[in-house]
């Protein structure tokens, strides 16, 4: 355990823990758009920057991204200095120039008093803030079906060569974890469409309700050794089946210890 000072308050933290996790635990409101526990810290949105110093640094201060900075004993952290607020304002201002119509960005910017961008709006705005969560989560799950393409301001998220991604299984992790809901998908009938590729959704054998895609189920049974027939029913039917079979045992043995 180490002890750090956050905004003047002594806080204990686990060694090697990232600063952002400690700040979140302390209920300090630090915005972060590119952070997710499932993936490695990335440090792209620069909103979670905090100011750190140490007694022995003689007043020298440094601004670091808290999502990437491991806590160490004796750190003195300030989270809302004027410089930091100014920096966050500028970044949100820049975000608004890129994503002027994105509610999530608008709300966050409004919290910092930025109602409208002071810069020139980009010609063809969309909701993607290029936080990289979708691609990193896809990598983490082992599919790597999508990736960031191009450099600099022309960067975007796309499947290989912008064709239907061959490695995608349609799990929707990218779309569900997108902080601005930019990634669109449709479930029509028992067909799911995402990234320009169509997937067949499995249906519950009894009720016909939709579960996961056939590709995802195949992946799980192949790589994670889950019997294929587990995917024949959805969770509700599974529970009913369980109740029936356990009921039979219960009648017979009068007690079911788990």
């Amino acid at each position: 355990m180490v002890t750090v000072t956050i905004n003047g308050k002594l806080v204990r933290a686990k060694e090697g823990e990232m600063l952002l996790a400690v700040l979140r635990r302390e209920k300090i409101d630090i915005p972060a758009l590119c952070h997710h526990e499932a993936v490695e810290p990335y440090g792209a949105c620069r909103l979670c920057m905090v100011e750190i110093t140490r007694k022995e640094w003689d007043g020298w201060k440094n601004m670091v991204t808290s999502c990437l900075y491991p806590v160490a004993d004796g750190l003195i952290i300030q989270t809302h200095t004027t410089d930091l607020i100014e920096l966050r304002k500028t970044i949100l201002d820049l975000y608004l120039a890129r994503c002027p119509n994105t509610p999530e960005i608008q709300d966050l910017a409004a919290q910092y008093g930025v109602m409208q961008t002071s810069y020139e709006q980009v010609a063809d705005p969309n909701d993607c803030i290029l936080c990289g969560l979708c691609t990193r989560i896809c990598d983490r799950m082992g599919f790597s079906a999508i990736s960031a393409v191009n450099r600099g301001h022309g960067r975007e998220i796309a499947p290989p060569l912008k064709n239907a991604p061959p490695d995608c299984v349609g799990c929707l992790a990218c779309a569900l974890n997108c902080p601005t809901n930019y990634i669109k998908y449709t479930d029509i009938g028992h067909t799911r469409e995402i990234w320009g590729r169509k997937f067949e959704l499995l249906r519950d054998a009894k009720t016909g309700q939709l579960t996961i895609t056939k590709e995802f189920a195949e992946y799980l049974s192949k790589h994670r050794v889950i019997p294929q027939d587990y995917f024949d029913l959805n969770d509700e039917s599974h529970r009913k089946e369980t109740a029936l079979s356990l009921g039979k045992i219960a009648i017979w043995s009068r007690e079911v210890p788990q």
Partner: peptide
């Protein structure tokens, strides 16, 4: 389930043969 880590891909919901992982 660590909900911070969970990416809501529904793999466990579909895989549990007793239907006890739910959304």
């Amino acid at each position: 389930i660590n909900t911070e880590i969970c990416v809501r891909c529904m793999a466990c919901v579909a895989a549990c043969p007793f239907g006890c992982s739910l959304f």
